[in-house]
Nucleic acid binder design. Structure first.
Length: 416
RNA sequence: GUGAACGUAGCUCAGUCGGUAGAGCUCCUGGUUGUGGUCCAGGCGGUCGUGGGUUCGAGUCCCAUCGUUCACCCCA
């Protein structure tokens, strides 16, 4: 059994994942993103400083260990901080901005596993550094929306909000805390902790009493700075121009400390409780927090397993055919001599299989059908004698003979 | 981390009041010379998640543990 919260990805699911990965790679290239691969583990400090000490990720979800050299290392729990670290480390602020980087990598978090939530999961992510332009925010959102559209992910919705900039967030926070504290009589332990660490998250509470208090609480949307409001309006204007539908949700709060201004989240209604399929936002202070030059940035991450789940829920089945052509050689004595033919077919781009278990002809045909072969090529003693091959169409059952010398060409044409 | 449900063959599941483990599907072999997907016959395949306990006897009852699932929380 794989360790709790981890899983084996078998060939059938791997085909779906390959589609997701290919769609992502294609889209990233078109949007001008270069791929980056950062290490699977980093100095713990990168995540503590990057992700923030008030987050669940840092507080209770990291796989942290001490190596033999006494360093504290952590398995990457999220993708943005390491990419920002790499950006700073390699002096990428000298490159023409925005610098666009994308990744496909596993993330590790110590979580309570359930459907759609694992201790190891893969994310496709993208980060763009060096521009505050709201049109960049809109482009990032569009890229992610295009990915879901290309893959045919059903039931996708986009929620959008602005967290404001750090300068105005402090005063708003004080306002919010004051409002809640005056009415926090019936709050439990959990709520009090949130009030202290991240009061905005109280907006998500399911507790009726808390909801009542929060309903009358001041909204960040009404307290944005002039600049933050203008930025947000420009993002929305660009999305409108692009025809990207979104819902404004002032209670949207992402659980990572580095976000500033734009935050967004895509949800999928086929996913149950873990409905978030991807999300991101702007992090204008992150690069500086990690020791780089002050550099604004926007990014997102989206979960490969969750996309797979959504696609499965939509009944998207990957093409089950594993081979195009099956070579059946009834006489065991002829098999070694015909292995080069299988090889030739494969080198000609034909997905080709043959029996490697000592089956009889009948079982070979059954095997060929099981693999979804379109054609079965039979070369028995008689054909071999005459330099011919019998080509059977597995759907119609029709057969005809083809000279062995022209077989590769013939099969390639037939399965193309 | 909290609450709840569930763990029997590769898969989907049945298993009564405790009495020596079953089906369907898959896979394999046959049904007279070298022809699949239908049909027929046969076969492979299970430490009943794991460890204790109760009992003459536990898949079945009890406890613990591990895992999965659902919800909370959080997130992708």
């Amino acid at each position: 059994m794989p360790s709790r919260g981890t899983r084996d990805v078998l060939p059938a699911e791997s085909r779906v994942r390959a589609r997701i990965e290919a769609a992502a790679a294609r889209l990233m290239a078109r949007y001008g993103f270069g791929r980056i691969t950062t290490p699977t583990f980093e100095e713990t400090e990168v995540f503590v400083r990057g992700v923030g000490t008030s987050t669940d990720i840092v507080r209770k979800e990291m796989y942290t260990f001490t190596d033999r050299g006494g360093r504290s290392l952590t398995l990457r729990p999220e993708g943005t901080a390491p990419v920002a670290r790499a950006f700073a480390e390699h002096g990428m602020h000298k490159l023409p901005a925005p610098v666009k980087l994308w990744y496909l990598a596993p993330m590790f978090r110590f979580e309570a596993p359930q459907s759609g939530r694992f201790r190891e999961h893969w994310q496709v992510g993208a980060e763009a550094f060096g521009s505050e332009d709201p049109l960049l925010d809109a482009e990032m959102i569009t890229l992610l929306a295009d990915l879901y559209a290309d893959l045919g992910v059903p039931g996708v919705r986009l929620r959008l909000s602005s967290l404001g900039d750090p300068a105005t967030r402090g005063p708003y926070r004080d306002l919010l805390v004051a409002h809640v504290e005056a009415r926090a009589a019936g709050f439990g332990e959990e709520e009090r902790m949130r009030l202290r660490d991240n009061p905005m998250r109280l907006f998500d509470s399911k507790d009726p009493h808390v909801q009542e208090v929060m309903a009358g609480a001041p909204r960040l949307a009404d307290h944005l700075s002039e600049e933050a409001r203008a930025h947000h309006d420009r993002v929305k204007g660009a999305l409108d121009a692009l025809g990207i539908a979104y819902e404004e949700d002032p209670t949207l709060v992402r659980g990572l400390d580095y976000y500033t201004r734009t935050v967004f989240e895509f949800t999928c209604d086929r996913l149950g409780a873990q409905s978030g399929i991807g999300g991101g936002g702007r992090y204008d202070g992150l690069v500086a927090d990690l020791g780089g030059p002050p550099t604004p940035g926007v990014g997102f991450g989206t979960g490969v397993e969750r996309i797979t789940l959504a696609l499965e829920a939509a009944g998207a089945d990957a093409d089950g055919a594993v081979v195009d052509c099956y070579l059946a050689v009834p006489d065991p004595a002829l098999r070694p001599g015909l292995m080069p033919l299988v090889r030739e077919l494969r080198r000609a781009g034909v997905r080709c299989e043959s029996d490697l278990r000592g089956r009889g002809l009948k079982a070979m045909l059954r095997h060929a059908a099981g693999l979804g072969a379109r054609l079965c090529v039979i070369v028995g003693p008689r054909e071999h004698q005459e330099g011919m091959a019998t080509v059977r169409d597995m759907r119609s059952g029709e057969q005809h003979e083809v000279p062995l010398g022209r077989l590769v060409e013939h099969v390639r044409g037939a399965v193309a």
